[in-house]
Simulated scan of single mutants.
Amino acid sequence: MSTMRHYWSQNPLFKNSLISDTMPRTRFELLLKMWHFSNNETCPEGDRIYKVEPLIKIFVNKCQEVYVPGEIVCIDETLIPFRGRLLIKQYIPNKTHKGFTWNMKLYAGKERDPNISVPTKTVMFLAEKLLNAGRTIITDNYYTSLELANQLLNQKTHLLGTLRSNRRGNPKEVVNKKIKSWRNYCERKWSRYLHWEVAGQA
């Protein structure tokens, strides 16, 4: 409903006895105000998702109980509409929420790891329970790298994705290779088709 209080409204348009008969609105609002998932006193310094991490684990476990991914799995960012104030909030206008969420890693700000790139670390974390089963992981150009491909191959998993030419670790043969643009290819084919159509009509 448009507002939380509508769930306790006596208006026939909004009336929902299932909720209003279970708990008074004031009681619910009080519980919501005091709602915590972890102890603030044990929160590690700098851990921005510590308070909601137990809830995230419960959610992910439930998702994995009801669905087993097939041979092809996509790993990508997804957005949740939010207009409030939040330090770790991001704005990516072209991203949409699609598909079934099987695993997730909440963005909590920039990460650094001297041993492995963050994109590779993220994919390996999300795909941990899906490895060594002959699956194919699909990623976009932020995640795709030779480093990730080798790590997945070592665990009997393939990688499919667009590779940035300036990605660290790319072989020189790949960087220097002149690849024909798919768009230019389609435009040439379409131009020939139109020429053939005009010639045929003449």
Results as ranks from 00 to 15, higher is better:
G109K: 01
H158G: 04
N176A: 14
E53S: 13
P171G: 09
Y143S: 07
P44L: 05
L30S: 07
T101L: 11
G134V: 08
T139D: 06
R48E: 12
E45L: 08
S20Y: 05
E71Q: 07
N170Y: 08
K98N: 13
C74I: 08
K156Q: 12
N150T: 11
N16I: 01
T78P: 03
N150K: 12
N176L: 14
G70I: 03
D47F: 01
W190E: 11
G70E: 13
P93W: 02
C63R: 01
E53V: 01
K177D: 10
K172M: 08
P119I: 13
T42M: 02
K129W: 05
F37L: 11
S165P: 01
G169S: 04
E65H: 06
A133E: 15
W182P: 00
P69A: 06
G109H: 02
I19K: 00
R168S: 11
T139A: 15
T26H: 05
I80T: 12
T162W: 00
I49V: 14
R27C: 10
S2R: 11
L153K: 14
T120D: 06
E41Y: 04
D21L: 07
T157C: 14
T139E: 05
S9L: 02
T22K: 00
R164G: 08
N40Y: 00
R27A: 14
L86R: 06
R83W: 03
R85Y: 07
P93F: 03
R167K: 15
E111G: 08
R25K: 03
N170V: 10
E147A: 05
D47Y: 01
T139M: 06
V60F: 01
H36T: 15
E187C: 12
C43Q: 11
L55S: 10
E197H: 00
N166P: 15
I56L: 14
P81T: 06
S17G: 09
R188Q: 13
K121S: 15
Q90W: 02
